[in-house]
Design a protein around this nucleic acid. Structure first.
Length: 183
DNA sequence: GACCAGATTGTCT
DNA sequence: GACAATCTGGTCA
């Protein structure tokens, strides 16, 4: 796999408030949603620690991969200091490397269709629950620093939830053609 | 373009 | 047993 970006994001990038981590991930990825702790009823972590949510309460900078709707897997990164719940859902990114492989896995040629949604990008990148709990500062899955921040950030409510529907915790790069589309 | 229904299984009550 | 942080393909316009 070709490396197209700067250094790997360090642990202390993730050990901060979830909304800050979400906001600052823009530029590395294009669209994110923040899911907080006990007060955020839309977050899996609001139910407390279960076998599934254990990772969210653990060390920052790890992958939380969950299975949803019987057929989709979604990638999150954990935030907040160790012991505090918080994670960031990666909703969209721009395909930069391995595009042919992504097309093969997705069964689609259109570049915009490869990673413009949380369920899509996990398929395109080959991410499964086997990667649940892996350390994002070490690999095999990593997030690299972006190329600067000369873009406008758009903040909106989150998509596809039934609780806390008004909370402005979705962040994406304005006018970018690779972000997902709300129904 | 908008809107709708179906697929399919892990997780928790 | 209900429901879910989604996607796709269909219909209609």
């Amino acid at each position: 796999m070709q490396s197209v970006n700067g250094p790997i994001l360090p642990r202390n990038f993730y050990a901060r408030p979830t909304t800050e981590v979400a906001h600052d991930l823009l530029g590395c990825v294009l669209e994110v949603e923040a899911y907080l702790g006990m007060d955020d009823l839309a977050a899996h972590a609001s139910r407390g620690i279960t076998p599934r949510t254990r990772v969210i309460f653990g060390s920052p900078g790890h992958a939380y991969v969950y299975f949803i709707y019987g057929m989709h897997e979604c990638l999150n990164v954990t935030a907040e200091p160790d012991g505090t719940a918080g994670c960031v859902l990666i909703r969209a990114l721009e395909p930069l490397a391995g595009i042919d492989l992504m097309r093969e896995r997705r069964g689609r040629a259109e570049l915009r269709d490869l990673t413009s949604g949380p369920g899509k990008l996990t398929v395109a990148m080959g991410i499964t629950r086997k990667l649940n709990g892996v350390d994002l500062t070490k690999g095999p899955l990593m997030i690299f620093e972006g190329h600067g921040r000369n873009f406008e950030v758009k903040t909106t409510p989150r998509i596809g939830i039934n609780q806390c529907v008004d909370w402005p915790l979705r962040f994406h790069v304005k006018n970018n053609r690779f972000v997902s589309r709300a129904r």
